[in-house]
Amino acid sequence: MRTVKAPNDMSEILNTLTESIKAGKRKDAKAATEQALSENIDPQQILAALTMGMDDVGRRFKANEIFVPEVLVAARSMKSSMELLEPVLAESGYTPDHTVIIGTVEGDLHDIGKNLVAMMLKGANFSVVDLGTNVGAQAFVEAAQTHKASLIGLSALLTTTMTAMREAVALFREQGLAAKVMIGGAPITEQFAQDIGADGYATDAASSVDLARSLVA
């Protein structure tokens, strides 16, 4: 017989989970997720606890209270929890509202910024399809169509490769993709984003979450 956890016990487990994510304690996050699942807590509530942890990480990152390594360690904890949670969510028929296709543009092999954005977006409960680095424009188009994406995120680190963004955005427009396009990377400026017809530009990974949320709102 399925027993439902008392609210106080439940909130204690979820709070532990949120705090484990915030502190980047992977083992604790995994243990709290296991406990939450074994106690039959609603998987969407577990997901909300994870998202709350990552939202706090993003807020502190934006405020320069924590830095990239702490974000990555928190995201790694989130990933461990999600590996346990995703099959349960899928079983319950839950899917995130929005899918983002993300990748570093053709000719560019840098991925730290792109990975950070992907992790932050996952933490904000977007479904993220990461195409990796050196991704041609056509591959973004195909992935966006296949996954019915709401957003496409393009990353570039080099001044020499960011020009590939212009070609990619032009192709997306030519193909009539419904997905909004957000771009980012060290050399990118707001002006450049406007010039190439992107829908938005984020200065850092935490801001990319705000941007993504605003673009799909």
Binding site: I66, F67, V68, P69, E70, I112
Partner: peptide, 9 residues
């Protein structure tokens, strides 16, 4: 740099 080494650490 600060991407690879956390100033907090």
């Amino acid at each position: 740099n600060m991407v690879y080494f956390s100033p907090n650490q």
